[in-house]
Amino acid sequence: MSADLAIQLSELKQKVEQMEPGKQNKLAMVVFSGDLDKLLAAMIIATGAAAMGMKVVQFFTFWGTAALRNPGAEANGKDFMSKMFGWMLPNGRNKVKLSKMNMGGMGTVMMKNLMKKKNAPSLDQLFDIAAQLGVEIKICEMSMDLMGFKHEEMIDYPNLEYVGVATFLAHARESTNQLFI
């Protein structure tokens, strides 16, 4: 009888959990964009949310993955297409450009100078703060494969993980907030 009750209780718990998703004080964010402006917004919101006491999980996918490349790292054994992608995509967060007013790179340089003048944190600083505050970064494995990136080419970041869409969805459904940037 008590075993029966235990099973019923666990089934009931599961049902209640399914009825009440989004109860955790957590932000699940997709970082799809590889543009400087959108990455800045993503990192400012992520660090801000962590400062507000929220758990933050960022999923980098598609163009966003290029921002996580480590320019100092190299990978061997890449095929022709992967090498092409490697040359054409930004090699890390300091090579990404503005989505508007880039003007052949001039706009991006001007924006970075302006940010320095205004003391606004750079992407480098924001990633540092994110790591300090425990912001979790997950990378879409399929995007890595599509772009031809290898794990050893990506940045050093605490507990960096390579995941699929189900991981994002599992986090998203139990989070109070979800964003797609």
């Binding site: 400012i44 660090t47 801000g48 962590a50 400062a51 507000m52 006491g53 205004k118 003391n119 606004a120 944190p121 703060i129 300090q132 505050l133």
Partner: peptide, 15 residues
Amino acid sequence: KGLPCPMPVVKISQE
């Protein structure tokens, strides 16, 4: 002083 968004809330949360 001189620190813009998001640094003020980041700092207070750390301190």
